[in-house]
Nucleic acid binder design. Structure first.
Length: 578
RNA sequence: GGGCGUGUAGCAUAGCCUGGAUAAUGCACCGGCCUCCUAAGCCGGGGACCGCGGGUUCGAAUCCUGCCGCGCCCGCCA
């Protein structure tokens, strides 16, 4: 209802002028109504009481009578308890909802300024299983990518996989021990954890193996050809596996988006050199560090960002700085988004601070840690991959699809074959994604199988179901004549639905501004609920008059398109049947 | 110890940035609705000292502050 507020704003100002109130005294008084029954917009008059030396109720009455003629035909004006309530007229709703119904973009305009956004998400580790933390990053990042692109921004996906570092010594040695063929087998069936854990165990228990692993790291870093080839085998097998998961999940990530840690390896000395040239580099306990300020360690001393370890090796802070250089200078990114868990908040604060100090970022750039909460088990404790949580991402997704398929068998046995498979996929995967996207991403997230895979309530299947019901109506419509008809709003169910249709653009805007996909979920659920009520109360095909039928068809069409568009922005499919 | 975050009905959440009128939604619970466009649905009902105490304000779930609980982070892992 931003659009209504914009419409009303000038008249409101005029009325305030008539009352003799300064603009600084009424700036925020006009806002969205908090009590839906009272209207769409409200003006709280209480703070004017002191200025005008009248009671809020009297001011409300007076303001109301000034606004009434000004806003005739736009809103109904009433005053109550010192509030002036503005409720959109049916005429206004018919007009604006009608515009949206006729708009391919459903009222969602592209941003006037297109930004180039590099978004870093998913980032699984080579030769390690993807776990629920990767699920969050992948699903949230995918949704944000879609939202940004929908608004006309240029998005560069960056899958910063963990493909470099000391563990690769032991992984390569383990690969050699198994023989490339067998190892490839193990990896290709997706037993990444088994591979990694065995290597780890050997490293810990077998000193000869540990020695070989360390030498292998040296060979890897010095660019030994054969070692690099073996390393590439590990990377290829892993990425093939990641791609399977991505395909099952239905996210946009492809091989071209891969930009692993190894890709920045050669830039790391330059990063340190650059920091040194800027005079930021300090030596502390043998390591090269930068003190960004604002952070203290346990002893109350300034906390450094280590860019080069005492042993001469580089670490993730160095790589992240190299990424910033690459993304800003080579890719021309205005905005840098990092869809990474909250525990790394301090790390990113320090990296961004150093990047600014070093001139790698300036005021035109926005570097944002798009943080998300930890994944908790049913016991409320953090689920960690190290503790060997048995939840494999692939297994979870497959179970979701299986369960969806079972429900289809119960609810709609007519669906068979390939179509049923695709629908089961859309429902199962959609349920998992929606469970992840529909809550505030910054809060911890309870990993609950039964909730995630239940298809009742505020879930993707509820929205998909609303969509499918509408599509089934259109299956029975023979003529397109409704397309050119106009809306006529006659009852509360229609009003509520039309208002919700108008609100779609606001929801997208809100999701974009705060990078919060759940704002879209909230709106889609509210829209679906409005539709559910409409569906029960307002016969469409058997409406008493043709004008009414056509008007309702328009509402249905817009609702369905908002659902499929909105779900699409969440990376969720909306099947025509289910 | 310091920093950051969080605490809303039995459970899970929205609202908090940008303060307003009976705190919203889902699950669970209770009661209704399928000769009628998909009942994965709809309608109605009960259930909350918005962690606790101060403060600012005409007005606080929302802003400030103190305390309590919980979580994460606090130098060579990422």
């Amino acid at each position: 209802m931003q659009i209504l507020q914009q419409t009303v704003e000038p008249y409101f100002k005029e009325a305030m002028g008539t009352l003799g109130v300064q603009s600084s005294d009424y700036e925020k008084l006009l806002g969205l109504a908090t009590v839906a029954d009272h209207g769409d917009l409200a003006i709280a008059c209480h703070s004017l009481s002191r200025i005008l030396k009248k009671s809020p109720v009297d001011i409300g009455d007076e303001l109301s009578s000034i606004l009434k003629p000004l806003l005739d035909g736009i809103v109904e004006v009433n005053s109550l308890n010192g509030f002036v309530n503005l409720k959109a007229t049916d005429g206004w709703i018919e007009k604006h909802c009608g515009i949206i119904c006729n708009d391919a973009r459903l009222g969602v305009n592209k941003s006037s300024i297109s930004r180039t956004v590099a978004i870093d998400y998913s980032s699984p580790n080579v030769a390690k299983e993807m776990h629920v933390g990767h699920l969050r990053s992948t699903v949230i990042g995918d949704s944000l990518t879609r939202i940004l692109e929908h608004l006309g921004h240029k998005v560069i996906r960056e899958n910063h996989i963990g493909d470099w570092g000391t563990p690769f010594g032991m992984l390569i040695e383990h690969l050699l021990d198994l023989g490339e063929g067998d190892a490839g087998n193990e990896l290709s069936v997706g037993d990444l954890d088994g591979f990694y854990k065995t290597a780890r165990t050997k490293f810990d228990d077998d000193s000869a193996f540990a020695d070989r692993s360390r030498s292998r790291v040296v060979l890897l870093q010095s660019g030994d050809k054969e070692t690099l080839r073996l390393w590439q085998v590990l990377v290829d097998e892993s990425t093939r596996y990641f791609n399977e998961v991505y395909q099952l999940l239905g996210v946009l990530l492809v091989d071209d988006d891969l930009m692993g840690e190894s890709a920045y390896h050669h830039l790391l000395p330059n990063v340190v050199e650059h920091l040194d040239n800027k005079g930021l580099l300090k030596n502390s306990d043998g390591a090269d560090v930068v003190f960004p300020g604002g952070h203290l360690n346990r002893d109350g001393e300034p906390l450094p960002l280590i860019v080069r370890k005492g042993d001469g090796g580089y670490n993730y802070a160095t790589t992240d700085l190299a990424c910033i250089i690459d993304r800003v200078q080579r890719l021309g990114a205005n905005d840098l988004l990092y869809v990474v868990g909250t525990p790394q908040a301090r790390h990113f604060e320090m990296v961004f601070a150093v990047a600014h100090q070093a001139g790698l970022l300036d005021d035109s750039n926005r570097a944002i840690h798009v943080n998300f909460g930890s994944v908790l088990g049913s016991d409320g404790k953090v689920l960690k991959s190290r503790s060997g949580s048995a939840v494999k991402l692939v297994d979870l997704l497959k179970e979701a699809v299986t369960r969806a398929d079972e429900v289809i068998g119960e609810k709609n046995p007519n669906l068979v074959g390939k179509e049923r498979q695709e629908i089961a996929n859309a429902i199962g995967i959609g349920a998992v994604k929606y469970a992840d996207l529909s809550t505030d991403r910054t809060r911890d997230y309870m990993f609950d199988w039964s909730k995630m895979l239940s298809f009742e309530g505020d879930t993707a299947p509820y929205l998909q179901y609303a969509h499918a019901r509408i599509r089934s109506i259109f299956d029975k419509v023979e003529s397109d004549s409704w397309h050119s008809s106009s809306l006529s709003i006659e009852n509360d169910s229609e009003r509520r639905l039309a208002r919700s249709i108008i609100g779609f653009a606001d929801a997208i805007q809100s999701a974009y501004v705060d990078l919060m996909p759940n704002r879209i979920c909230i709106h889609l659920h509210q829209l679906s609920a409005a539709f559910g009520s409409f569906y029960e109360n307002c016969p469409v095909l058997v409406a008493e008059k043709n004008e009414v039928r056509d008007s309702r068809l328009k509402l249905c069409d817009a609702t369905a398109r908002i659902l499929s568009t909105g779900l699409g922005l969440l990376g969720i499919h909306a099947p025509d049947r289910m």
